[in-house]
């Protein structure tokens, strides 16, 4: 590290100034340390019937998240699916409805399997809430200002 700083102090200083000038200011990094993240290595597909629909604080409680409790079709196990902030998800979901979810499994749940959703298929419509690496669609970003991503 020291050798690096000795070798290229001007380059590092210039880089620091350059990136400070262009740094994003939308989301502070500190303080957002949730217990779970979208793990691309643990992606799975599930299908089940809606048992319950909850609004729960997640990620520093910025906005209530839509959480759907599904009962898996074959195994009858309960799965808690974290979908997106409630304001972002504009589809109506009802109890008893069948959903297909592509998402990432996280942490040992208490009697529940926990999943962070990436795609939710409901009544033939596919709603994309995260990209393939788990980037949240509602966070926008410079290339994604169109709101909720959907597909047939």
């Amino acid at each position: 590290m020291e050798s690096l700083l000795r070798a290229k102090p001007i380059a590092v200083l210039a880089a620091a100034l350059f990136f400070a000038a262009f740094a994003p200011a939308e989301y502070p990094l500190s303080g957002q340390t949730p217990p779970h993240f979208y793990n691309v290595d643990k992606e799975t597909r599930i299908e089940g019937t809606v048992q319950d629909i909850l609004m729960e604080p997640r990620y520093e409680a910025r906005a209530p998240f839509l959480v759907v409790i599904l009962e898996e079709k074959d195994t009858r196990r309960k799965i808690s699916v974290e979908v997106s902030p409630a304001w972002f998800f504009k589809e109506d979901i009802h109890k008893g409805e069948r959903l297909r979810v592509v998402g990432s499994v996280y942490g040992p749940g208490e009697g529940l399997v926990n999943v962070i959703a990436r795609e939710v298929q409901c009544r033939g419509r596919t709603i994309t809430v995260r990209d393939k690496r788990g980037f949240p669609t509602w966070s926008g970003g410079r290339r994604n200002r169109g709101g909720q991503g959907t597909g047939a």
Binding site: E26, H36, F37, Y38, Y59, R133, G134
Partner: peptide
């Protein structure tokens, strides 16, 4: 992470 649940 700066984005909710995003750690690629």
């Amino acid at each position: 992470s700066r984005f909710e649940g995003y750690l690629p």
